[in-house]
C-alpha cells in the first residue's frame, strides 16, 4: 500500500510542482510595477487569470490522482505506444541522462571552446551515445559536418557563431581562414 501511495505521489508530482510554482507566480503577479490608472485591469490581471486556472486544474489533477490513481494512459512513464511500431519500446534512462548532460555541456562550452571545436566533440559524443559504433564514419561525419555547418552559416548565412575565448578562438580563426571566411 505505501508503495501505491508513493506511485500516486510520483504520478502527481508534475501537478504538485505546477501548484507550488503557480502560487508563487500568482503572488509575484500582484506586485508588478506600473502607473495605475482608474478603471484599468493592470498588467497582473491576465497572468493572474491564467495562473488561477492552472492552480485550480492542477489541484483537481492532484486530488484525482491521489484518490483514484492515474487514469488509463495518463500515468507517468506510460506514454501511448507509437502506432505502427511492432517493437516493444525499451527505455535506457542512462542514455537520456547522458544526452541531457552532453547537451548542457555543449551549450556551456560553446562560448569557451568555440562553435567549431564544441560541435565536433558534441557530434562525436552524441553519435557514440546513440549507440552508433563505426568510429571512422563518426569521425568523418562529425568533422565534415562541422566544417559544412560553419561554411553555410558563417560564410553564406552571415551568422556570427561563438568563436570561443583565447587560446581556443585561434583554432576557430584558423578554420575560418581555411574555409575562406573573412
Amino acid at each position: 500500500m505505501p508503495g501505491k501511495i508513493g506511485d500516486r505521489l510520483r504520478q502527481a508530482l508534475f501537478s504538485i510542482i505546477l501548484v507550488i510554482a503557480g502560487l508563487y507566480l500568482y503572488y509575484l503577479a500582484g506586485k508588478f510595477e506600473f502607473v495605475a490608472k482608474p478603471g484599468h485591469l493592470g498588467p497582473g490581471f491576465w497572468p493572474r487569470l491564467i495562473l488561477g486556472l492552472i492552480i485550480v486544474l492542477s489541484v483537481g489533477d492532484v486530488i484525482v490522482t491521489l484518490v483514484r490513481g492515474g487514469k488509463d494512459g495518463s500515468s507517468y512513464g506510460e506514454s501511448p505506444a507509437r502506432e505502427g511500431e511492432d517493437l516493444e519500446r525499451k527505455r535506457y534512462p542512462l542514455l537520456l541522462y547522458g544526452g541531457m548532460a552532453m547537451t548542457l555541456a555543449y551549450v556551456y562550452l560553446t562560448t569557451i571552446l568555440g562553435f567549431a571545436l564544441t560541435t565536433f566533440l558534441y557530434l562525436v559524443g552524441f553519435m557514440y551515445l546513440g549507440r552508433y559504433r563505426r568510429p571512422g564514419v563518426v569521425l568523418v561525419a562529425s568533422l565534415v559536418g562541422t566544417l559544412c555547418l560553419m561554411l553555410i552559416f558563417v560564410k553564406i548565412v552571415y551568422i556570427s557563431l561563438p568563436p570561443g575565448i583565447t587560446p581556443f578562438n585561434n583554432l576557430t580563426f584558423w578554420l575560418y581562414a581555411l574555409l575562406g571566411i573573412r
Binding site: Y122, L123, F126, M127, Y132, G145, L149
Partner: peptide
C-alpha cells in the same frame, strides 16, 4: 543511422 541524423538535428 538515426544517431547521426539526431546529432545534426540537435546542432541545427
Amino acid at each position: 543511422p538515426e544517431a547521426v541524423t539526431s546529432a545534426f538535428i540537435m546542432v541545427l
